[in-house]
Design a protein around this nucleic acid. Structure first.
Lengths: 107, 107
DNA sequence: TTTATATATCGTAATATTGCAATATAATAA
DNA sequence: TTATTATATTGCAATATTACGATATATAAA
């Protein structure tokens, strides 16, 4: 075999795993980082910022979009990408919940 | 090609990506979830909890250990696994930082 | 209309991940 | 010592991801 047995796990566990999978590549972390650095959401020059070819970046952006980590709106010829705060909050809350549950543990 | 061009990205971006990669599989999310549910850290029966063979689970545990998400201490014949709160805090803080930076943005 | 610019999709080669049977290792029990 | 039990490692087949050249699409400018 080799395929992930995702059907064997709960929808929630799969959702979380997919969210983290979207963040599991340095290029995608760099994209998120860059979107944070730029003052406004008028982007479109991510291709010049990263050491990857345009189709590769387009692919990474698609994965971030599918995971709802970023949103893109058409702005003339370019596309304006920005981070989706809801997803960020969702992830932060998830780890806050874990931290909370850990408080009563032995370690 | 096909290999991730990780050398082209910063150490920090690679570190974060590796952390999320460790959480990018439903089995590993399920393991973390299970460690949270169990009262103490005396575990050892993760194999019976998940629909995967023992070598597969051992491999997933290894990846979580390498990413410092869990720690394992030898407890007689078994091994006692528990979640590393430091790493959880680190991730939570990262997203808190992102949320903070987003406050001054247009979306 | 034609050209230029920005992004997306297709096809494919290189590499990585996943899962497990078989086997190894290590500690305890008999 | 020889089981027994728990976990790790090896080897390999199936599948997924990554990267990019070529090409397609879509909008704006000339």
């Amino acid at each position: 075999m080799g395929a992930s047995k995702s059907e064997s796990f709960s929808a929630e566990h799969n959702e979380l795993a997919n969210l983290f999978k979207a963040l599991s590549h340095p290029a995608r972390i760099a994209i998120v980082d860059y979107l944070l650095k730029v003052d406004a959401c008028i982007c479109g020059d991510i291709v010049n910022e990263l050491p990857l070819a345009q189709p590769t970046i387009s692919q990474h952006l698609k994965e971030l979009k599918n995971a709802n980590i970023i949103k893109g709106t058409i702005e003339g010829t370019a596309i304006c990408y920005c981070i989706n705060p809801e997803t960020i909050n969702k992830i932060e809350n998830h780890f806050g919940m874990i931290r909370h549950k850990l408080k009563n543990k032995c370690c």
